[in-house]
Design a protein around this nucleic acid. Structure first.
Length: 307
DNA sequence: ACCCAGGTGGCTT
DNA sequence: AAGCCACATGGG
């Protein structure tokens, strides 16, 4: 039942960076018996992560350029693609270093988190590079997840998504062997099962005013077929410019998409002096300055500023 | 009590 | 096109 994959010689890879840059909501560091997680000097979990991608659960560990995956399913190419291991992020970072300050691409500690970018003077010390990767996630899961994300915070988004999966998804057989406490993990519910949900159930589950949007989005996805373009996405109730860009970047792997959320507004104000209401100006700036790499740039900036 | 979180829809200028 | 504001919920 349980499969094991080992990938050697993996560069530009860090589980904490990948799973905690806001692109996904179902991966968490594995806790010890006391519920603690070991952190490195920069405040990032150093050990294994456990979570779900599509219908498969997995536990991953990365050490000395070797990635080890224990999974309930999928094959080598599934996980390779999910983690975007075909892409050379060294090249991307080399290009981005020309257009964003180099310290954004470097590790830093939590104690530095809330300093203004304008007053920050990093000096010439060298630090490990941030090693984000843009995952190749399921489109439907990404749509529903980012509809839930609106005007919400990441811990609560994660809770709501887990509740949705536990109630409407399927238990993943073998996942109980991966969790520390024998707990089952659940697949993300299918399009059909989300379409069949009564919004009042979601309201009872504290989804708030998003409750109506979720089954409606699944129905639309079924009836109209998979959305491809920005215009397709923004036509959904509950999907505006920001969520549409997140879905393009994280669910369709359109890596020039540049989602502008509250954090990016803070960054663009702090770093480049944009008014926080001037999302149009920010988008144009990102397109001109970051071009085809705008999505990567956004992720590095988001990770840098939010940490 | 108030403000914020990976915002959007709808209504008014 | 741009500017308001309500929208559920929970944490600080």
């Amino acid at each position: 039942m349980k499969k094991k994959f080992v990938f050697n010689g993996i560069k530009d890879f860090n589980l904490a960076h990948i799973f905690e840059c806001g692109q996904c909501f179902r991966w968490n560091p594995v806790e010890d018996e006391n519920g603690n997680v070991e952190l490195d000097e920069f405040g990032n979990p150093t050990g294994a992560y456990i979570g779900v991608a599509g219908a498969y659960a997995a536990r991953m560990q990365f050490q000395d350029d070797t990635l080890t995956i224990e999974a309930t399913g999928g094959d080598e190419s599934f996980w390779w693609h999910y983690l975007d291991l075909d892409t050379d992020y060294g090249v991307i970072k080399r290009e981005l270093r020309k257009v964003i300050p180099s310290y954004v691409l470097e590790e830093r500690g939590d104690s530095e988190a809330n300093l203004s970018l304008l007053v920050k003077k990093r000096g010439s010390e060298t630090r490990p590079q941030i090693s984000i990767r843009i995952l190749n996630q399921d489109k439907f899961e990404t749509i529903i997840s980012f509809i839930i994300s609106q005007n919400n915070n990441i811990p609560r988004i994660k809770k709501l998504i887990e509740a949705l999966c536990e109630r409407y998804g399927e238990p993943i057989s073998g996942s109980e062997e991966l969790t520390a406490d024998g707990r089952m993990l659940f697949s993300f519910p299918t399009i059909e099962s989300v379409a069949a949900i009564n919004p009042s159930e979601l309201a009872e589950m504290k989804f708030g005013y998003r409750a109506d949007y979720i089954p409606a989005a699944a129905k639309r996805f079924m009836e109209e077929g998979e959305p491809e373009s920005y215009e397709d996405l923004i036509a959904y109730l509950g999907i505006g410019p920001k969520v549409a860009n997140c879905i393009q970047l994280f669910g369709l792997h359109k890596v020039d998409a540049f989602p502008i959320d509250t954090w990016v507004k803070h960054i663009m104000n702090d770093m480049y002096g944009f008014k926080e209401s001037d999302t149009r100006g920010m988008a144009q700036f990102a397109e001109e300055r970051f071009g085809t790499l705008a999505g990567y740039a956004q992720q590095y900036l988001f990770f840098y500023y939010r940490k």
